[in-house]
Simulated scan of single mutants.
Amino acid sequence: MTTIAVLPGDGIGPEVTDAALPIIAAAGLDWTLEFGDVGWSCWQTEGNPVPERTWDLIDRTDGCLLAAITSKPLREAEAELPVELRGTGVRFVSPVIQLRQRLGLYANLRPVTDYRADTFAFEVVRENTEGLYAGFDYHGLDGELWDLVSNHPNAAASGPADTSVSLRLQTRVGIDRLLRFAFERAVVGGHSLVTLADKPNVLRQSSNFLRGRLETIAADYPDIDFEIANVDAVALWMVKSPGRFGVVVAENMFGDILSDLGAGVMGGLGLASSANIGDGGCYFEPVHGSAPGMAGAGRANPMAMILTIAQLAEHLGEDTAASRIRTAVSNVIRAGTTVTYDLGGSASTSIAAKAIIEELS
């Protein structure tokens, strides 16, 4: 029996979760659901947004659905700690970052599908663990870091105390497993092209290293074409000609930007699902975040959560159920009579979800 950890989280998370979960039974998925705690309320009461009991739940289940979590800046986080924990060095670390690091989830997978007219369907694969988001971000420089940048005229004029620098980390291990994941996705999805989005005309050394690893990995997939393209050009093509892509793969920051652009191309974050996958773990989440200003209003689009369930089903080998769910979502979107405000309708969260369940039935 398949057991799924469900973490409703914060903001609109609980309401989109409640609306979406009935799709599991309607699609004929024999899953047992176990609910856990995560997010801002855990931080406010326990000083830990991912309690150990939640890690235990994740460790003993077959997959994880995370609905939404709230993160706030340093001062606000400190102010909302339990009084007895303030000033003790307890630090808020986003549950998303904790999950990716602790479970080794190096690949973020974002489907970009035209549910209105079926004119494109591609995937963005984003690296999760290194790149410009690896955490090598410094302000106030000294030693070798200052020596590295001091010849830049702006740095020389500002001085080390008023200069910042971020480093883009790229390793053979991180690059190779990401690129291999992208080519495997192309095989599974029947795509004929893998596009590496980078900036080789500016980031010459790191991009050249990346290019070499791409050529090495691509040699193992002779039936799939590959290219390396400037990330800004890829952004333009995604808007003007999304049908040209199969799998787009990029380092952390570039992938972050392109995956949200893909959500806009397909109709908005209300349709955007995602998976975070490693060699031994995974979790799945809609991309829209917790949207605290909308919490409790019943206006949030449940389709991203429903499509996330479909993505999890596919990951677990339930391809037929996943396809049926996506077809039901597409039919409701095309009908246009029971969609939420972001898709031009006036349906509530629950009504939109029920329409998909009825279509599925």
Rank of each mutant, 00 (worst) to 15 (best):
V188W: 14
A117M: 04
Y133T: 12
V112S: 02
E215Y: 01
D319W: 00
Q311K: 09
I12M: 12
T119H: 12
I257L: 12
A197F: 05
I228T: 10
G189Q: 06
M303T: 10
T338W: 00
G255H: 08
T119R: 14
L145V: 04
S94C: 02
T163H: 05
Y341G: 13
A328F: 00
V90E: 01
W237Y: 08
D260L: 12
A321G: 03
R100W: 09
E78H: 00
F245K: 10
S350H: 02
A20D: 11
S206M: 09
T195E: 10
Y133H: 13
G268A: 11
A161C: 02
E314H: 14
G345F: 01
L214D: 06
E358M: 05
I58D: 09
A275Y: 14
A219N: 09
L33P: 13
T61Q: 07
A219V: 09
L33G: 08
V194L: 15
N201E: 10
N301R: 06
V188R: 15
A20C: 05
T17F: 09
H139E: 11
E52Y: 00
T338C: 09
G89F: 03
Q101G: 01
I277Y: 11
R326Q: 08
E227W: 03
P222L: 03
Y221P: 09
G89L: 04
A5V: 11
P200D: 05
N301I: 12
D256L: 05
R334N: 04
D225I: 06
G13T: 04
V249M: 06
V90P: 01
R100F: 04
V287L: 14
V339R: 03
W55Y: 09
V202Y: 07
G246V: 13
H152P: 00
Q170I: 13
E215F: 00
T54R: 11
E314S: 15
G264H: 03
A121D: 15
L109V: 15
R204K: 15
